[in-house]
Design a protein around this nucleic acid. Structure first.
Length: 824
RNA sequence: GCCCGGGUGGCGAAAUCGGCAGACGCAACGGACUUAAAAUCCGUUUUUCCGUAAGGAGAGUGUGGGUUCAAGUCCCACCCCGGGCACCA
C-alpha cells in the first residue's frame, strides 16, 4: 500500500455505516459470572434535545467517549449509555411561538441530534436509549411520586409563584427577566400563592451534607462539594419564643446569636408571616403586599431595607423587656421561622435597618480584650464577652449560648435548634410538557393518588398553546375529568406537571434496565452497575441536578429499590466552551459555533481531537478556530506515515538502512515513553491535551528517523500508534487498523503496554548551577552516582572559572536531576 | 459581602512531588521543493543589553514581601479576571 491522501469524509462515512450495521459493538456484556471482566459504568449527562448539538456537548461527549474506549481497551466491561432529557419549557415555547406541538418538535429534535451524535462516532449502546418524555419512562416518575407520597415525602402546600397579569399565567423563573415577563418586558411580575407539590428533601438535608464528607470527598471536585454544602447551609442556633403583648400567640424567632438577646430592640417578621398578617391593619397589609412584590422585582444585592411597625409589642423572654414588632422586607419567610429578633449592635443588617427607622441600639457584647462600645458606629459581630445580660453577663459568647439554650429549654420558651438553608423542593409546574402529577382531587375524598395499575397518566395530545391562562392541561376536559378511584364521584385530575429535574434525578438507573415494564428497573441489574464509576458533565449542574439526584438515590434506597447511597463514585466537571469573545457561548451573544460545520470541513476525528487538545478538560475552553489546523495536520501526518510505511519493504534506500539500529532505538524509546505518558494521563488526570501533545512529539520523532527505521521497528510502531490514537480519533484508527491488515475494531484491542527498559533514556543532560544560576549542562549516563556528578560538574570547563578563588559552601546533587554548587 | 477557580510569550497552553520556565500547537518569519502558487518538509521565534560573528551577560510566570542551595510551584499581604451564592438571622 502506498501513501494516500487523508480523506476524512470517505473514511468517516464508511466506518459510520460499518458501526451502524453492528449494533452490538458498544454493548456492555450482560454476563455476570465472577470470571467476567470488571464493570465500568461511565455516564455523560444526557442532553436536552434542542435540535442541535453544540460545542459544549461535543466537549462533554468527546471526553466521556475517550474514557469509555480506553476502558474497553483496558479490558473492562463498559456500560456507556445515552438518552434525552426531553421534557421542558423550550418545547412549549416553540409551541407558542411557532405553532409546533411539543411532542413533534421534541421527537424530531431527538432524531436530528442522534444523527449528529452518530456522525461524531460516539460509542453509545443505542439499545439503552431513553427519552424522558415517553410514557414508558415518565410512568416511573409517577410511580416514584406515589411511593414518596405514601411516605409523606411528597406533599402539598401553598407557595408563591411568578404571575404575569398580562398573560394571566404562571411564569418559570427563567421567564422572568429583570422582574418582568419575558413576553411583556414592561409588565412587572407579581407573586401569587398557589397550592403546590413539594418533595421533602429537607428530611435528607443532614445526610446529604454528611455524605459530602464521608462518601464523596476525593471522588467529586472540591468546588462542587463546597457549593453543595453552602446550598444545604446547615446552621446551628436557637429558637426562642417572644410572647405578643395582649395575645396568647407567640412569635418564634431563629437566631445563631442568642448570646446577644439582651441587645434585641425589636422583633421583625417577614411581610408574609401569618402573625404579621393577623396583627396588621388594612394599611399595614397593603404595605406588606407592596414589600413582597417589590422584593421580587429588585435584582439581587440591591434590596433597600424597608419595613413598618405593626403597632404591637413583644416580650423578650430573658429580660422581660417590651420591644416593638415590625415587618421587614429583608426577613425571609422561608428561612428559619420567618421571624427574627433585631440586635442592631451586633448584626450588620439589623444595624442598617434600625438606624434607618430610629430603633434604639444597645450593645451587650464587648471584645475579649476591650470595653463595651456604648455608641457603636457599626455593628460588632465578632464573638466576645456578654455584658448587661442579667445572670448571663460576663460569659464568653459560646458559653452564653449554651447556658441560655439550656435556660430556654428548662423554662419552655425555646431550645437549641438547627436550621438549613436548603428548602423543600417545589416540583409543581403549571406547564404542559412534563410528567403529569398522578393525583386526583375528589370533592368527597379530597386528595386521592392514582392507583398504580392506572399508570401512566398520559399527556393528552390535543392541547391548545396560547401562553395564557392556567396550566394548559386544566383546559383539556378529557384529561381533567375522571372518576374518583375511591368513591367513584366526578373528580378532577391534578393539572400540574413535574419539574424536569425529577426526570433527570434517576435516569442513569433506568439505563441499566431501560425496557422494564413492571418496575422502574430491576434491582439486580442496578446492583451490577452502581455506583456509577464516572459521571461527567458541566459544572453548571453542580447544585440542582447533582443534589436532587443524590436525594433520589437516598429515597430509592430507603424504598428498598437499591442498596447504594450515592449515585456516582466519581464526578468530573468539564469547563465551559467560551465564544471567541471570552464569554459563554449563547445564542443571544451570537458567538455560537455549530459543530456540524466543523465536522463537514475537517471531519469528526479532527473536531474531537481539537476540543481535547485545546486545554485541560476541567478548564474553560476559549474557542479559537484558527488553531484547528494543528490537530488536522497531525492526523494527516499520522495518516501518511502509517499508509506509506505499512508495507514498505523493497525500497532500496530503506534496505540499505536496515542496520541502522540507532534510529530504531530512538524511535522505540519515544514510542514507549509515549505509551507511558498517555496511559498515565488516562489513569490520573485526563489531561488529554498533554496526551495528544505527546503523540505529536512521537510523530515528530518518527518523521525525523523515518528513512532509517527497520521493518521490525515499524511493525511495532505502526499498530501501537494506531491504538494510542483510538480513544481520541476512532474513525482514522479503525481505518488504519484495517489497512495494517488487522481485524476487529481498534477500540477492542488490548491497550498498548510500555516496556520501561525500552523507554529509559541512556544519556541525560544534567543542569549545573552555581549559586542557583544555570551555568552549564553535563551529559551523563542515567543513574550516574552522586560522587561522580560532583566531580564532573566541578571539572566542567564552564564551571571551573566560576569556582576559582571561591570556597564551596555547599554542594547539592540530585541524581538524574541537577547539580547546584553554592560558593562564597 | 462570602465561598470557589484562575492570572505564564503575539495567541491556546505545558511544567504531575520545590529542581533546566515556555513541551505541544496556532500565528508570523526564513529556507528547501515548484515555472509559480498551494500543499509538504526543514528551521527561527520570551525579552533586554554587549558582540561583525561564534558567543556572552542580565531580566522574566499579576504586584510587594518572606522561606529555601533552589519558587510558576510553599507562606503572608495586596491587585485584577471568571464562576457560584448573596440580606440565610
Amino acid at each position: 500500500m502506498a501513501e494516500s491522501v487523508y480523506d476524512h469524509d470517505q473514511i468517516e462515512l464508511k466506518w459510520q455505516q460499518r458501526w451502524a450495521a453492528n449494533p452490538a459493538l458498544y454493548k456492555a456484556d450482560a454476563a455476570s459470572d465472577a470470571s467476567a471482566a470488571p464493570k465500568y459504568y461511565v455516564v455523560e449527562m444526557f442532553p436536552y434535545p434542542s435540535g442541535r448539538l453544540h460545542m459544549g456537548h461535543v466537549r462533554n461527549y468527546s471526553i466521556g467517549d475517550a474514557l469509555a474506549r480506553y476502558m474497553w481497551m483496558r479490558g473492562y466491561n463498559v456500560l456507556h449509555p445515552i438518552g434525552w432529557d426531553a421534557f421542558g419549557l423550550p418545547a412549549e415555547n416553540a409551541a407558542i411561538k411557532r405553532n409546533m406541538h411539543p411532542q413533534d418538535w421534541t421527537r424530531s429534535n431527538i432524531q436530528e441530534m442522534k444523527k449528529q451524535m452518530l456522525r461524531m462516532g460516539f460509542a453509545y449502546d443505542w439499545a439503552t436509549e431513553i427519552a424522558t418524555c415517553e410514557p414508558d419512562y415518565y410512568r416511573w416518575n409517577q410511580w416514584l411520586f406515589l411511593k414518596m407520597f405514601e411516605r409523606g415525602l411528597a406533599y402539598r402546600k401553598k407557595a408563591m409563584v411568578n404571575w404575569c397579569p398580562e398573560c394571566a399565567t404562571v411564569l418559570a423563573n427563567e421567564q422572568v427577566i429583570d422582574g418582568c415577563c419575558w413576553r411583556h418586558e414592561t409588565t412587572p411580575v407579581e407573586q401569587r400563592a398557589l397550592e403546590q407539590w413539594f418533595f421533602r428533601i429537607t428530611e435528607y438535608a443532614d445526610e446529604l451534607l454528611k455524605d459530602t464528607y464521608d462518601k464523596l470527598e476525593g471522588g467529586w471536585p472540591e468546588r462542587v462539594l463546597s457549593m453543595q454544602r453552602n446550598w444545604i447551609g446547615r446552621s446551628e442556633g436557637s429558637e426562642i419564643d417572644f410572647a405578643i403583648e395582649g395575645s396568647s400567640e407567640k412569635i418564634r424567632v431563629f437566631t445563631t446569636r442568642v448570646d446577644t438577646i439582651y441587645g434585641a430592640t425589636c422583633v421583625i417578621l417577614a411581610p408574609e408571616h401569618p402573625i404579621a398578617q393577623a396583627l396588621l391593619d388594612d394599611a399595614g397589609k397593603a404595605k406588606a403586599k407592596h414589600l413582597i412584590d417589590a422584593r421580587k422585582q429588585q435584582g439581587p444585592g440591591e434590596l433597600i431595607k424597608d419595613g413598618a411597625p405593626t403597632g404591637h409589642y413583644a416580650i423578650n423572654p430573658y429580660s422581660g423587656e417590651r420591644v416593638p414588632i415590625w415587618i421587614g422586607n429583608f426577613v425571609l419567610m422561608d428561612y428559619g421561622t420567618g421571624a427574627i429578633m433585631a440586635v442592631p449592635a451586633h448584626d450588620e443588617r439589623d444595624f442598617d435597618f434600625c438606624t434607618t427607622f430610629g430603633i434604639p441600639i444597645r450593645s451587650v457584647i464587648r471584645p475579649v480584650d476591650g470595653a463595651l462600645d456604648e455608641n457603636p458606629k457599626a455593628a460588632f459581630c465578632d464573638y466576645g464577652i456578654t455584658e448587661k445580660s442579667g445572670e448571663f453577663s460576663g460569659l464568653p459568647s459560646a458559653d452564653a449560648r449554651r447556658k441560655m439554650n439550656e435556660f430556654a429549654e428548662a423554662k419552655g420558651f425555646g431550645k437549641a435548634a438547627i436550621t438549613f438553608r436548603i428548602k423543600d423542593w417545589g416540583v409543581s409546574r403549571q406547564r404542559y410538557w412534563g410528567t403529569p402529577i398522578p393525583m386526583i382531587h375528589c370533592p368527597k375524598c379530597g386528595l386521592v393518588p392514582v392507583p398504580e395499575k392506572d399508570l401512566p397518566v398520559t399527556l393528552p395530545y390535543n392541547v391548545k398553546f396560547t401562553g395564557r391562562g392556567r396550566s394548559p392541561l386544566a383546559e383539556v376536559p378529557e384529561f381533567m375529568n375522571v372518576k374518583c378511584p375511591t368513591c367513584g364521584a366526578d373528580s378532577q385530575r391534578e393539572s400540574d406537571t413535574m419539574d424536569t429535574f425529577v426526570d433527570s434525578s434517576w435516569y442513569f438507573y433506568r439505563y441499566c434496565d431501560p425496557r422494564n415494564t413492571s418496575a422502574p428497573f430491576d434491582s439486580a441489574a442496578v446492583a451490577k452497575w452502581f455506583p456509577i464509576d464516572q459521571y461527567i458533565g458541566g459544572v453548571t449542574h453542580a447544585i440542582l441536578h447533582l443534589i436532587y439526584s443524590r436525594f433520589f438515590t437516598k429515597v430509592m434506597r430507603d424504598l428498598g429499590l437499591i442498596t447504594n447511597s450515592e449515585p456516582a463514585q466519581n464526578l468530573f466537571t468539564q469547563g465551559m466552551v467560551l465564544g471567541s469573545d471570552g464569554s459563554a457561548m449563547s445564542k443571544s451573544k451570537g458567538n455560537v459555533v455549530d459543530p456540524e460545520e466543523m465536522v463537514g470541513k475537517y471531519g469528526a476525528d479532527t473536531c474531537r481531537l481539537f476540543v481535547l487538545f485545546a486545554n485541560a478538560p476541567e478548564k474553560d475552553m476559549p474557542w479559537i478556530e484558527s488553531s484547528v489546523g494543528g490537530p488536522r495536520r497531525f492526523l494527516e501526518r499520522v495518516w501518511r506515515f502509517v499508509t506509506r510505511n505499512a508495507e514498505r519493504t523493497a525500497d532500496a534506500e530503506w534496505v540499505a538502512a536496515e542496520g541502522s539500529s540507532d534510529a530504531d532505538r530512538r524511535a522505540l524509546r519515544k514510542l514507549h515513553q509515549t505509551i507511558s505518558k498517555v496511559t498515565e494521563d488516562f489513569d490520573n488526570r485526563w489531561h488529554f491535551n498533554t496526551s495528544i501533545a505527546a503523540l505529536m512529539e512521537l510523530m515528530n520523532r518518527l518523521y525525523e528517523d523515518e528513512a532509517s527505521l527497520s521493518r521490525a521497528a515499524l511493525d511495532q510502531i505502526l499498530p501501537n500508534v494506531t491504538l494510542l490514537l483510538a480513544p481520541f480519533a476512532p474513525f482514522i484508527a479503525d481505518e488504519l487498523w484495517e489497512q495494517l491488515g488487522r481485524t476487529g475494531p481498534a477500540f477492542r484491542q488490548p491497550w498498548p503496554q510500555w516496556d520501561a527498559e525500552l523507554a529509559k533514556e541512556d544519556l541525560l543532560e544534567i543542569p549545573v548551577q552555581v549559586n542557583g544560576k544555570l551555568r552549564a549542562k553535563i551529559i551523563v549516563p542515567i543513574g550516574t552516582p552522586q560522587a561522580e556528578l560532583e566531580k564532573l560538574a566541578q571539572a566542567d570547563a564552564k564551571i571551573q572559572p566560576l569556582l576559582e578563588g571561591k570556597t564551596i559552601a555547599k554542594l547539592i546533587v540530585v541524581p538524574d536531576k541537577l547539580v547546584n554548587i553554592v560558593v562564597r
